[in-house]
């Protein structure tokens, strides 16, 4: 099945994508960097964009398996709740912003504010992240295989950030913490499943819990939030 963006408006493309059934697989050709493609897809169909997309591709994803053969603009997968998004190239700013569930994997690099305000889910970056990755991350896992820029994890809450490359300057209240062997194995398994190479040495960053009025320990909060 094929959808040709050159023949349709963005609204028409999305309407066609939302009509897919769970078993459908579709190639979307000639996206040419247009914004708002593939937003609010609920059906677990497979959608493959052959070319770069613009801003907010896969936003509010709630079950689709989206792949992008190219780059993506701002806000990739913003507010996703389920499903998966894989980008073969690089992404611009705010990829995974406020995502609540599902998985986003970027095989290239990311601009600033990767995973800003994440509320759940897993965001994996194979390359390097720009400044302010994980800014105010509330929950979920942000995994950066490459280097992380300045301001990493600034003002973070209960999310967890893992960096395999070099750390830039940590953000406000972001601190390094130990990882146990079980955590390392789970991390390795996530990367293997995503097709991302392992790193020799992982760093884990969490909140220092000095900035905010945190409610109890990590464990108590996890129970309270039903994480």
């Amino acid at each position: 099945m094929e959808i040709n963006c050159d023949e349709l408006t963005v609204t028409e493309v999305n309407r066609a994508l939302r009509a897919l059934k769970a078993s459908d697989r579709v190639n979307v050709i000639h996206p040419r960097g247009r914004d708002n493609l593939g937003v609010a897809l609920r059906t677990p169909a497979a959608v493959h964009f052959k070319g770069s997309v613009g801003a907010y591709c896969g936003g509010m994803n709630n079950g689709a398996s989206i792949t992008i053969e190219g780059n993506a603009g701002n806000g990739l997968g913003e507010n996703s709740e389920a499903g998966s998004i894989v980008v073969t190239g690089s992404v611009s700013t705010c990829a995974g912003a406020s995502m609540r569930g599902g998985t986003i994997t970027v095989m290239g690099d990311a601009g600033n504010r990767l995973g800003i305000s994440m509320k759940g889910g897993t965001l994996i970056l194979a390359g390097d992240a720009g400044p302010m990755a994980g800014f105010m991350i509330q929950a979920g896992s942000l995994i950066i295989r490459g280097d992380a820029g300045r301001g990493l994890g600034d003002s973070m809450y209960e999310g967890e950030i893992y960096v395999g490359g070099c750390l830039g300057e940590l953000g406000n209240d972001a601190v390094l913490t130990e990882m146990d062997e079980g955590e390392r194995e789970a991390l390795a398994a996530s990367l293997t499943a995503a097709g991302v190479a392992r790193a020799a040495d992982w760093k884990k960053i969490v909140a220092g819990r000095q900035l905010w009025h945190f409610r109890g320990t990590h464990e108590e909060l996890a129970i309270w939030m039903k994480l």
């Binding site: 000639h30 960097g33 770069s52 780059n71």
Partner: peptide
């Protein structure tokens, strides 16, 4: 935006 560049360079050009 890449969207603008794709009006003057062929689709598939490394951006």
């Amino acid at each position: 935006e890449e969207y603008a560049l794709l009006t003057v360079v062929p689709e598939g050009t490394r951006v």
